[in-house]
Design a protein around this nucleic acid. Structure first.
Lengths: 124, 124
DNA sequence: TTGATTTATGCAGGAATTTGAATATAGTAT
DNA sequence: ATACTATATTCAAATTCCTGCATAAATCAA
């Protein structure tokens, strides 16, 4: 009886068991984001984000890329998004429309800086 | 920020987090089965099966139907099978081929009785 | 009713996980 | 080198969960 598959499947589901981790994956849906962005976007403390990122990273669901001070994370396998779509539909609700809408947040990283209207601090 | 979806999604994943529950769902893939069948097929004790069935039932993933002494369970929403297929593919391995192969087990319920070669106990 | 069979539930010990605070590491700039 | 920023990790407390035992409920037969 090869239940190794079942165990690995269960581990995968276990990784997806937490709302914060699901929120992180949804935030990464459109492409890579730095930790500071996730912090500002999702409203969790930095250490907490980092911990949940570590769980997702160890499960090989996301991968990181360092660029200077910032670390950018992205989804490692696209099929995880299909999984999120299906379950999202199962519990009712369109896919992450609300989450994407709130994407313009004040994040200091170079990538996010361009996508914002100039803040007051940048003006004379 | 409507994270109700995320919470419900997380609950769904939490329900699928356990190998025994996944095994039960796989056993129900081809149609309804009674508890005694699951007991014999999966090799868990009766109380344990019943507990895991209760978890799945409360999550509305399976429904029960009583027929005399026996209670038959079946999958409540087919899309859960799609979910299992996708994750099964993600962790590697074909869908439940091994589980279905071992389906002929000695189970006393009326439904299973017909699908077995006559056991020694039924002969004079 | 009594007894037998099938399934469900309540409870307690122990294991695993989440959570938050404190601290450590890596990179950049002065 | 020192200071500073961004991210990671460690550690302990609290909560939650799994597991197994004992027992209860439901159904049928005599």
């Amino acid at each position: 009886m090869s239940n190794n598959h079942l165990i690995r499947q269960a581990h995968l589901f276990r990784t997806l068991m937490h709302p914060a981790r699901l929120a992180i994956l949804e935030a990464l849906r459109d492409g890579e984001e730095c930790v500071c962005h996730l912090e500002a976007h999702l409203g969790y403390r930095q250490a907490y984000i980092s911990q949940q990122l570590a769980v997702l990273r160890k499960a090989k669901l996301i991968v990181d890329r360092r660029d200077g001070l910032n670390v950018f994370y992205r989804i490692a396998r696209p099929d995880i998004l299909t999984l999120l779509d299906i379950t999202r539909a199962m519990v009712g609700g369109s896919v992450s429309a609300d989450l994407r809408a709130a994407k313009a947040v004040d994040c200091p990283c170079p990538k996010c800086a361009g996508s914002l209207v100039p803040s007051a601090a940048a003006l004379p």
